[in-house]
Simulated scan of single mutants.
Amino acid sequence: MDARKPQAPIKGRGAASYVDGRYAKTVARGEDDGWGSVYEDLLEPPHPDTRVTEERARSVVSRNDSPDVGFSQSVNPYRGCEHGCVYCFARPSHAYLDLSPGLDFETRLYAKTNAAERLQAELARPGYRCSPIALGINTDSYQPIERRYRITRSLIEVLSACSHPFSLITKNAAVVRDLDLIAPMARRGLVTVYFSVTSLDNKLSARMEPRASAPHARLKAIRALSEAGVPVGVMVAPTIPMINDRELEHILEAAREHGAGAAGYVLLRLPHELKQIWREWLELHYPDRAAHVMSLIRQMRGGKDYDSTFGARMRGEGPFAQLIAQRFAKAHKRLGFGRLPPLDTGQFVPPRKPSPQGELF
């Protein structure tokens, strides 16, 4: 028995182990002392609790020039994500904190409690140029701890007060809590929402994304937003060969039926430590097809586990990737999907810069 290999999945968690981060200064390894103690410990998988550290951010607006995404600015109210999606491309970012992209990513979370204050200060800068802000791109803005911290809501309040456009993508139906802010902004062309729907199978969803909203709850949230006048779309992301790719058309049909007006998809991405986390998950949940799944993934990535090249990392290459693209295009046209309306940057009114004298007038 390999003392380093996880022997069972952990209920309520996506990752199965504390995969070492690529910048780790110290690395822990299990070694049998001859009494079988290492193996006994592995019979009982860890059950780590969620721990949240409150932090004061110096800045919250991140900028990028990637041609693969439709935004240049983003704000992430949290670091780490309790949803625990095993496939999350953001997991390797926890290595910068000297934490594991595995279990630490979904249990050791950071809440930027001054995010709204820092955002307002950024928008008030004289040189600021309005461009739509994407909320929660690296980690989900509506992950479970948002119920307690309400940082995402505070950010939307700032954006609403100065008529700043924004978009968001989420796996959590909790977004409907903020319809009182989102719906009025939507009527003014200031907000769009995408839902990530990876599977309609409750069991598969619970394995891949254990603390995200169930598929039917996401569909209900799509309908609630659509009926409130919010432009809403669906992302089948990630699309994974031999795991959920067969559901592509069914997800698009269900989302369209519930009011989604636009749709997209992204192939599974495996940067850095995510390769090991994903392989562990496959071996634990689908040992009979793990090798075949990885073979198809490599066929779509030029013979590698992952290709980060702009233009290819979202769609892949090769016959299987082309087949998925063709299936998506056919379903997209048949179901009458379009595009979400562009966001209006012309209404932006910079907030007043905070003054030590307060608001006298």
Rank of each mutant, 00 (worst) to 15 (best):
Gly127Met: 00
Leu267Ile: 13
Tyr23His: 12
Asp41Arg: 04
Pro67Gly: 09
Leu43Gln: 14
Gly12Arg: 02
Ala173Trp: 04
Ala262Trp: 02
Phe348Tyr: 11
Asp305Gly: 00
Leu323Asp: 15
Gly84Ser: 08
Pro356Lys: 00
Lys203Glu: 08
Asp41Met: 07
Leu200Ser: 09
Ser37Asn: 15
Arg153Trp: 02
Pro46Thr: 12
Arg301Lys: 09
Asp2Tyr: 02
Val176Lys: 08
Glu209Pro: 12
Met294Leu: 15
Ala237Pro: 09
Gly261Phe: 08
Met1Gly: 09
Ala224Gly: 04
Gly14Lys: 10
Arg63Gln: 09
Pro132Leu: 13
Ala134Lys: 01
Ala90Pro: 06
His292Leu: 15
Gly303Cys: 08
Val349Thr: 14
Ala3Gln: 01
Arg150Tyr: 06
Ile169Glu: 12
Asn202Lys: 06
Leu103Cys: 05
Ala183Trp: 00
Lys25Thr: 03
Arg108Asn: 13
Ile169Gln: 15
Ile324His: 03
Ser154Gln: 15
Glu122Tyr: 10
Ala115Asn: 07
Ala134Phe: 11
Ala24Cys: 05
Tyr23Trp: 09
Thr26Phe: 10
Gly80Val: 04
His292Asn: 13
Gly21Gln: 00
Ile151Arg: 07
Ser72Asp: 05
Met235Leu: 15
Arg218Gln: 02
Gly21Ala: 01
Ser199Phe: 11
Ala124Pro: 01
Tyr128Arg: 11
Ala237Asn: 11
Val234Glu: 11
Ala115Gly: 11
Arg327Phe: 06
Gln7Val: 14
Leu168Val: 08
Trp278Pro: 09
Phe337Met: 11
Lys5Ala: 03
Val197Ile: 15
Ala57Phe: 11
Arg246Trp: 13
Phe71Ile: 02
Gly311Asn: 06
Arg298Trp: 12
Gly30Gln: 11
Arg211Ile: 02
Glu257Pro: 04
Ser199Glu: 07
Ser37His: 13
